[in-house]
Design a protein around this nucleic acid. Structure first.
Lengths: 315, 315
DNA sequence: CCACTTGCATAACGTCAGGTTATGCAAGAG
DNA sequence: CTCTTGCATAACCTGACGTTATGCAAGTGG
C-alpha cells in the first residue's frame, strides 16, 4: 500500500521526536523552578521529568535549563523557547476545551457590527459563505455609523465590528486591524446622459448639472465627497439629497438622473449587476481605511473568529 | 513521595486522553479528505488513523467527521474544531523549529521605533528588564516623530514601533494596538515658586508669568499644549522655548524657572527622582492613545514579541 | 569538619499506548 | 452481479515512557 518511493510532503522532516510531553514538562519546570516540583505537579516521578528534559535538550542541542542546588532556572535559550512551549500548551488547552465543551450551535447569537457600506458590500459575501459552511449559525448584524459601532463595541453589545478608526479617546482598549481602504465612487443609472462608458471621461464639473445624492453628514465618505466637491468648485451642496440610508440613496439614483457619490463598495453589487453605471470621473483616490475593530482584552468567540477570517478572505 | 491526598492544580482535569497525535491525525484527515490519504501522509496504516479518529470522537462525544464512500468530510462540529487543532499543530511546528534552529542570539539586531516620550519613559524600563533577562540581546531604537516611525515601519527599517495612530492613508497594512493614553503634565524644578506641593492648586494663568518650554511644533503633545494654553487665554506662545528634544527641554527646566509642558511619561522619571516637581495645574485630561504599531502581514521576531510583552507589562 | 538535607542523574525494569497485518463490510460503478 | 474504494474491527507485537532504587554533588547547621 505504502510506496516508500513516494516523497509525501511531511509537515517537517525534523519533527525529530518532540512530543507534547516534552513541552508540558518543560513548562512545568519553568514554572515550578524545580524538577521535583514539576514532577509532582505532573503526577510523575522526578526521574521521568529529568529524562524528558534531557531528551528535549538532546534534540535542541543545547542546555535549556540550568540545574543547580537551588533548583532549576531557564537559560537564555530556555526562556526564549518557553514562549513557544507556552503557546503550544495554551493552544492545546483551548482545543481540548473546545472539544469537550457542549456544542451549542446557535444557542447564543454572534453579534457583529458593520458600517452601512460594509453591510452592503463585503459583509454579505462573507455571511453567505458562513451560512454555506455553517447552516445553524445565528448572526445578528448591527449596521450603524462608526461612532455608534465603537460605542456598541466598548459597551459589549457586539463582539467585533467592521469599521474605521475612531477618535483617539474612543479607542481605549480597542484594537484595529486594517482590511482594505475604501475610496469614492460616482455612479448613476445606466441610462444617465453621463454614463458614456469607460472611453470618454466625464469632467467633474458636469456632475453639478444633475441632482446629487451624498452620504449623511458627518460620515467619512461624506467628508471625502465634500472635499471632492469643493475641489471642483461646488462648495455648498445644493440640489442635494443627503442621507445615511443606502437603500434610499440607491432608489433615488435608480429612479432618476441623480448622481450618487458614495463608497465604491456600497455600489459594487449594483454595478456588477448592470443596475448602476460608474461615471468616469477623476475622483481623488483618498483612501479611508476600514478594518476590524475588537476589544483588545476579550478574545473572540469561535464563530466571530471564523467570520473575521471570511471577511479577511473576501477583502 | 507523592501523597495522593494532595490536590495538585492540574492544568485541566479533563485533559482526558487527548494527545497531539489525535490533532495531527485530525488535521491530516481534514486536509486529505480521506482516512487512507491521511494515513499515508502521516506514514501510518489506515487502521491506525481510523482508531485515532475514533478515540478523538469518543472524548468529543460526537462525530467530527462524516465517513462515506466518497471519503471523509468534516461535520459542522468538526470544522469548528479544526481551527483549534490547526492552532496547536502550527504552534507545535513553530516551537520545534525554534528549538532546532541554531540559536543566533544577537547576530541580527532588533530594530524598534519609539516616540521620544516613550523612549524616555516606558521603553527604558522595558529594555532594562529585557537586558536583565537576555544579556546578549542587541536592540536598536529609533526615536523619532510619529510620521517618521510610520514611514520607517512601512519601509521595513524597523520591526515595530511604539507610537500613535497616523493619518488613515499612512496606516495601510499597519495594525495598531492601544497600550495606554498619554496625558499632559506641567512640571518645573522643585525650587520653583509655583511648586507648592499638592495642597495648593496653581491657577493656570499663573504659568504665563514664567518662561514656557513646549514640545516641537506639529507633534501630538504640542497640539494638546496649544489647546490648553488657548483655553487659558494665551493664544500665541510667547516667551516660549519649543523643541522636539526632551534633553534640551529638561535641561532648560532644571536650570531655570521655566515651566515645562510635556507628556506625563516624559517627565515621570525625574518627578519620581525629585528632580522635577509636577505643578498642580488643572490640565485637560485629553488622552492621546499610544500603542504598538506593526505590519499586519509580517510576524514579529521572537525578541520583538518579547519586548512588546514587556512593554505591555510596563504599561 | 562531619552528618544531614536538597535536588538532579543514572540504572534496571515493567506495561500499556499505539502501532502493525489481516480481514470484514458497505456502497457505488460498470 | 461483480469489482473497486474506503472505513471498521480483531488480534497481536514492540518500544516509549513510566516506575523504583540508588548514586552524587553541594550547601548547611551543630
Amino acid at each position: 500500500m505504502q510506496e516508500p518511493s513516494a516523497p509525501v510532503p511531511l509537515p517537517s522532516t525534523a519533527l525529530s521526536r518532540i512530543r507534547l510531553r516534552h513541552l508540558t514538562c518543560f513548562v512545568a519546570i519553568a514554572e515550578e523552578r524545580t524538577l521535583a516540583g514539576a514532577a509532582t505537579r505532573l503526577r510523575l516521578s522526578q526521574p521521568a521529568v529529568s529524562k524528558t528534559l534531557a531528551e528535549l535538550e538532546l534534540v535542541a542541542g543545547r542546555r535549556l535549563v540550568d540545574r543547580g542546588r537551588a533548583g532549576a532556572s531557564l537559560t537564555e535559550d530556555g526562556s526564549r523557547f518557553l514562549r513557544h512551549a507556552l503557546e503550544v500548551t495554551r493552544a492545546m488547552e483551548s482545543a481540548s476545551q473546545a472539544l469537550t465543551r457542549e456544542s451549542a450551535p446557535g444557542i447564543a447569537p454572534l453579534r457583529i457590527g458593520a458600517l452601512p457600506t460594509v453591510a452592503g458590500g463585503l459583509l454579505p459575501r462573507a455571511l453567505v459563505r458562513l451560512h454555506r459552511a455553517r447552516p445553524h449559525a445565528w448572526v445578528q448584524v448591527l449596521s450603524a455609523s462608526n461612532p455608534e459601532l465603537v460605542a456598541a463595541l466598548t459597551a459589549g453589545r457586539i463582539e467585533c465590528a467592521i469599521g474605521r478608526m475612531a477618535e483617539p479617546g474612543a479607542m481605549r482598549g480597542i484594537s484595529f486591524e486594517l482590511l482594505y481602504t475604501e475610496s469614492l465612487a460616482v455612479v448613476a443609472r445606466p441610462q444617465h446622459p453621463l454614463a458614456t462608458g469607460p472611453d470618454r471621461p466625464v469632467p467633474a464639473s458636469a456632475l453639478l448639472d444633475y441632482p446629487l445624492v451624498v452620504p449623511g453628514p458627518g460620515t467619512a465618505p461624506r467628508l471625502q465627497a465634500d472635499a471632492f466637491l469643493q475641489s471642483v468648485g461646488a462648495d455648498a451642496p445644493t440640489r442635494c439629497t443627503e442621507t445615511a440610508s443606502l437603500t434610499l440613496a440607491r432608489a433615488v439614483t435608480l429612479l432618476s438622473d441623480a448622481v450618487w457619490i458614495t463608497s465604491r463598495h456600497a455600489s459594487q453589487l449594483d454595478v456588477d449587476r448592470g443596475l448602476l453605471a460608474p461615471l468616469d470621473v477623476a475622483v481623488p483616490q483618498s483612501a479611508e481605511p476600514v478594518g476590524v475593530l475588537r476589544r483588545t482584552r476579550t478574545p473572540l468567540s469561535d464563530l466571530a473568529e471564523e467570520v473575521v477570517d471570511l471577511i479577511r478572505a473576501a477583502a
